[in-house]
Write a protein that binds this DNA or RNA. Structure first.
Length: 374
DNA sequence: CATGCGTGGCC
DNA sequence: TGGCCAAGCAT
């Protein structure tokens, strides 16, 4: 890692901000510095690309124009507005924080990093972003861009996958950030990280700060940032039960915590759970597995079903850490069946269209439609 | 501190 | 295709 002199720091600030003034992106949330606008955009932008966020942001602001509107929103309406963005706890934390702001803060925003971090869903990065952009606090906002940009500029060898590395970057950037224009400085770094100093195929030769990019100047840019690799998603196999009656589907509501919390999907049976019912799981044939699925549904929910494969390849969906393979089964259920022990209910397509559904469920419906049509 | 948590895009 | 990345946070 190298260190800059005070002269170099001042030259870097001017070069960066001159470039930002001339070439910074015109984004919907940059029309003003309203903390509500900054906040919503920053939460949406977590682990999500700008191009994806723009239409969501526009619709969100039209639906929930103020903190008060968000605080009072129907949760189902809120989730529908977030549908497809992923990481749905972001939306739930958003409303939790809106209620905190209205009820505990009487609508007055905390303006410091520590004050902002007390709000649900606001961590060190988002607190720094709001504090600097909305309240002109000279604090860093260290996201993936800042990690990547400064790792290359200064040849910082610390592993950015390690949580403690954040402290190092915050200290380094705190000395470099322009105290006169901290919000613009932080946003300029992000624009730089998403244009010239990208993760893959950077274009540092044409970057406005190439003279400050020590990794590039030394011809070792591809070594930075240093980042430990993550384990690949674990494959998991499920049966998805398609149970229809009177133009309705029997849908299951997922638990209130964990993956796709509270979302509605077809009843899903983990293949592993079904195999546990056999004393010799390694010898179970595909036909016998279907019987085990029927047994498991009977044991778990007191429902008698008969299942038949719908055909086609399993529907696959990859999450950050899991890869699901869902085999659809056409299931028939006694229409007088007692659903008291089943965590779900009958829903029509119209009703399903009104609520937020995860992408996985959308894929499952698409598969059914393609089979039905064929 | 390590792990869990969605989705889309790119090569 | 699989692997990696994209304006992270809660627990």
């Amino acid at each position: 890692m190298i260190e800059w002199s005070q002269t170099q720091i001042k030259a870097f600030r001017k070069t960066l901000l001159d470039w930002y003034d001339a070439h910074g992106r015109d984004l919907p949330w940059r029309r003003d510095h309203d903390p509500y606008h900054v906040w919503i955009s920053e939460i949406m932008l977590q682990q999500t690309q700008v191009q994806t966020v723009i239409p969501y942001y526009e619709r969100f602001m039209a639906t929930f124009p103020t903190v008060e509107a968000l605080a009072e929103a129907d949760e189902a309406v809120l989730m529908k507005a977030w549908e497809g963005l992923g990481y749905y706890s972001r939306a739930r934390n958003l409303q939790r924080a809106a209620k905190q702001l209205v009820e505990d803060y009487h609508g007055v925003w905390p303006q410091t990093v520590d004050g902002l971090k007390a709000l649900s869903g606001i961590g060190p990065y988002t607190a720094g972003a709001i504090a600097s952009i909305a309240f002109d606090q000279p604090v860093p906002a260290v996201d993936g861009n800042a990690f990547r940009v400064f790792a290359r500029l200064l040849k910082i060898d610390a592993d950015i996958a390690q949580p403690k590395t954040r402290q190092l970057f915050e200290q380094v950037i705190s000395r470099i950030i322009d105290p006169q224009r901290p919000g613009d400085f932080n946003q300029a770094i992000m624009d730089l990280g998403s244009s010239y100093m990208t993760a893959k195929q950077p274009d540092s030769a044409n970057s406005p700060v190439k003279a400050f990019n020590q990794a590039y100047l030394d011809g070792v840019e591809e070594r930075y940032p240093v980042k430990a690799k993550k384990p690949r998603p674990v494959k998991q196999y499920f049966y998805g039960l398609v149970i229809q009656h009177d133009q309705q589907f029997l849908m299951q509501q997922r638990p209130s915590n964990g993956l796709l919390a509270n979302f509605w999907t077809f009843p899903l049976v983990a293949q592993e759970e079904a195999l546990k019912l056999s004393e010799t799981p390694e010898l179970v044939t595909p036909e016998e597995q279907l019987q085990l699925v029927e047994q498991l549904v009977q044991q778990s929910y007191g429902l008698t079903v008969h299942v038949v494969p719908m055909g086609g390849r399993p529907v696959t969906h990859t999450f950050t850490h899991r890869q699901w393979h869902v085999t659809l089964l056409n299931a028939t259920l006694d229409k007088d069946a007692d659903l008291s022990y089943f965590p779900g209910k009958w829903l029509s397509r119209d009703e399903l269209a009104q609520i937020a559904l995860p992408k996985l469920q959308e894929k499952l419906f698409n598969r059914i439609d393609s089979i039905t049509k064929a």
